[in-house]
Design a protein around this nucleic acid. Structure first.
Length: 609
DNA sequence: ATCGCACGC
DNA sequence: GCGTGCGAT
């Protein structure tokens, strides 16, 4: 669309009296959208530059307070802005609308303002309506829902090297930009609330996602303490090991090269050392050097593959988890504050970034040691609570499979039972290897995996994988029905849903190309399971957060890792917290199988898990 | 900016 | 199946 020339009333506010008058008008309205302009993307480091408010469509006001460029001479003082507007911002009866309002609320929290009455986040509404959309930013939403072309952030600040901080943007320009943001947000709300109703997603939006938002905000603000010295020590130790490994690899390879470069490593392994080529990479058709490839090469005579595997795992730990985490300690709080993103995944899960605290290693000894560096405050401990096999339980619920349900009701070891069923032995006679295979199959079923993937995953031949899957379908008759039912639903309606009616559209379910169609089918199988598990833990988080506030407990929820919640709690409150968390998580929703939660307690994350 | 790789659930 | 981040190119 053309940039519209519609008449709008966007004004600058530079006097306290004007602002006070506005507060009176807003109080009569009972609903506003607002937007903050700041110095940083990181809400905990951001300083307020200005704030825009919109109380009716096409009418907005911008209050500059932190500009240093043109027009900065007539600004209000930050303190005056906050003093006057607190009456509105902290009033729970005045509904707040925003685009990614968690960000603005955290910025204001850091400036001493406690936002109350958070009502509608347009970004989250867009996500609930269509989680597959890659971006839910205002520009995209304005274009899609209002056919309106906005002034972009880049147009105001410039891009790349020449870009300027928002505090240097001319006040007049900032006004046009910021007022439009607040105005469009309010207009979008009207459109999106209607869409939510049409889609039958009001409960998911208001009762789940919008109520989760303040929980996530508290978690992000709380942060988590790390033992910086521990991380630095471990990094130095790894450095020494890596140097030694590097030397050994060069000696064995007979040449020096960059081990971190897959390209150079491929050349050394397959051209210099003439090791047998396993496979090529997907896009660039180079030699693959990933974990699976290197594992196969271990028995080929050269020591290099084994050494590179070791090198890779240690280098990963150092770069991603030790050095990076230390850099992200907030100087003011001394803690690490992740962002929990509520509008990223296609299935309804959260994601975590800056840093990602949902992929801290656990499987190997060296990796797991990193968790010892996440520590509770003096006098406190961590309490970790994780759902046992939540996705398999959700799957048992959905499929209604008698055998699976029975296994969970009896509290059996599900992978052992699966092994016994598909390999035709007594449960007592299941070997660890048989259990490992069964576990992979159980996961494979959840992912909608076919025999090809399963054979690769387990390193067995295709026919064996096929026979396992067939046996599985014979033994668990609900499983096959479930798969067919979800694929059929996707074909009929164009989408699949979770227990709480979260939708995922799968337009490619009828695609003429088999590979693409098959991928959509796997999504149809996996999404209701993964998404329902996500819905359940989100609901539990809301309930726990409420209970902790109601009971005036000091315990704090710090992290969510898909099926696990991590809390920090003073020693006196541990037992009470444990009861609450277990009760709320296990009782969050009545499925056809019981939900089970395991709780661990310790001074650090490794101990608690 | 994109790719390959590796970490989590 | 679903993510994020690092280092190389």
């Amino acid at each position: 669309a053309e940039r519209s020339h519609e008449r709008v009333d966007y004004r600058l506010c530079s006097s306290q009296d004007e602002l006070r008058e506005l507060v009176q008008e807003i109080k009569k309205k009972g609903l506003i959208s607002f937007d903050t302009e700041t110095t940083s993307q990181d809400p905990l480091r951001a300083k307020l530059v200005g704030l825009s408010l919109c109380w009716e469509e096409k009418k907005a006001i911008y209050v500059p307070v932190g500009h240093t460029g043109p027009g900065a001479s007539t600004q209000l003082e930050l303190k005056d802005l906050l003093d006057i507007l607190s009456a509105v911002l902290e009033d729970k009866d005045i509904k707040k609308v925003g685009q990614n309002i968690k960000y603005d609320s955290e910025v204001l929290w850091n400036h001493g303002v406690r936002i109350r009455g958070i009502h509608f986040d347009t970004m989250i509404a867009s996500y609930v309506i269509n989680p597959a959309l890659r971006q839910h930013n205002l520009e995209v939403l304005a274009q899609q829902y209002l056919n309106h072309k906005m002034i972009t952030y880049r147009e105001v600040t410039g891009r790349g090297k020449g870009s300027i901080n928002f505090s240097k943007v001319a006040v007049e320009k900032a006004k046009d930009y910021s007022c439009e943001d607040a105005d469009i947000t309010l207009r979008l709300m009207r459109v999106l609330e209607a869409r939510l109703k049409e889609e039958g997603n009001e409960a998911l939006f208001y009762d789940l996602e919008m109520r989760l938002l303040p929980v996530l905000m508290d978690m992000e603000l709380a942060g988590i303490k790390i033992d910086t010295e521990f991380f630095k020590r471990m990094s130095n130790e790894l450095n020494a090991q890596l140097l030694a490994l590097e030397e050994e690899i060069f000696k064995e390879a007979g040449t020096e090269f960059n081990i971190n470069s897959p390209q150079q490593l491929g050349w050394v392994l397959f051209e210099k050392l003439k090791l047998p080529v396993q496979r090529k990479t997907l896009k660039t058709r180079r030699y693959s050097t990933d974990l699976r490839t290197l594992k196969k090469l271990v028995s080929c005579g050269s020591k290099v593959p084994q050494l590179v595997l070791k090198y890779r795992s240690l280098a990963k730990i150092r770069s991603t988890y030790l050095d990076a985490l230390v850099k992200l300690v907030n100087p003011k709080t001394g803690r690490i504050h992740t962002s929990f993103n509520q509008t990223v995944t296609a299935t309804g899960r959260l994601s975590s970034s800056n840093p990602n605290l949902q992929n801290i290693p656990i499987r190997t000894r060296e990796g797991r040691a990193i968790r010892k560096g996440f520590v509770a405050e003096e006098g406190c401990v961590f309490l970790s609570a994780d759902y046992s096999q939540i996705e398999l339980r959700v799957f048992a619920h959905y499929s209604g499979d008698k055998s699976l349900i029975e296994a969970f009701e009896r509290g059996e070891d599900i992978h052992r039972r699966t092994a016994a069923e598909i390999m035709g032995v007594n449960p007592e006679d299941v070997t660890p290897e048989m259990r490992r295979v069964a576990k992979a199959i159980n996961f494979g079923i959840i992912y909608g995996m076919g025999p090809q993937k399963l054979s690769e995953e387990l390193g067995i031949d295709l026919s064996t994988a096929k026979s396992y899957i067939n046996r599985y379908f014979e033994r668990y008759e609900g499983v096959k029905k479930y798969r067919e039912k979800m694929i059929q639903m996707a074909r009929d309606k164009g989408y699949v849903t979770t227990l709480f009616n979260r939708k995922r559209h799968l337009p490619e379910i009828n695609h003429s190309k088999h590979v693409i169609r098959a991928e959509a089918e796997r999504m149809a199988i996996n999404t209701p399971i993964q998404g329902t598990a996500a819905d359940l833990i989100k609901k539990a988080m809301i309930k726990i957060h409420e209970t902790l506030n109601r009971e005036r407990l000091g315990a704090e929820m710090l992290l969510q890792v898909h099926d696990e919640l991590l809390f920090e709690v003073c020693k006196e409150e541990v037992e009470e917290l444990k009861e609450i968390v277990k009760r709320e998580m296990e009782g969050v929703y009545k499925l056809r199988v019981p939900l089970k939660v395991d709780v661990g307690i310790g001074k650090n994350w490794e101990e608690a898990h």
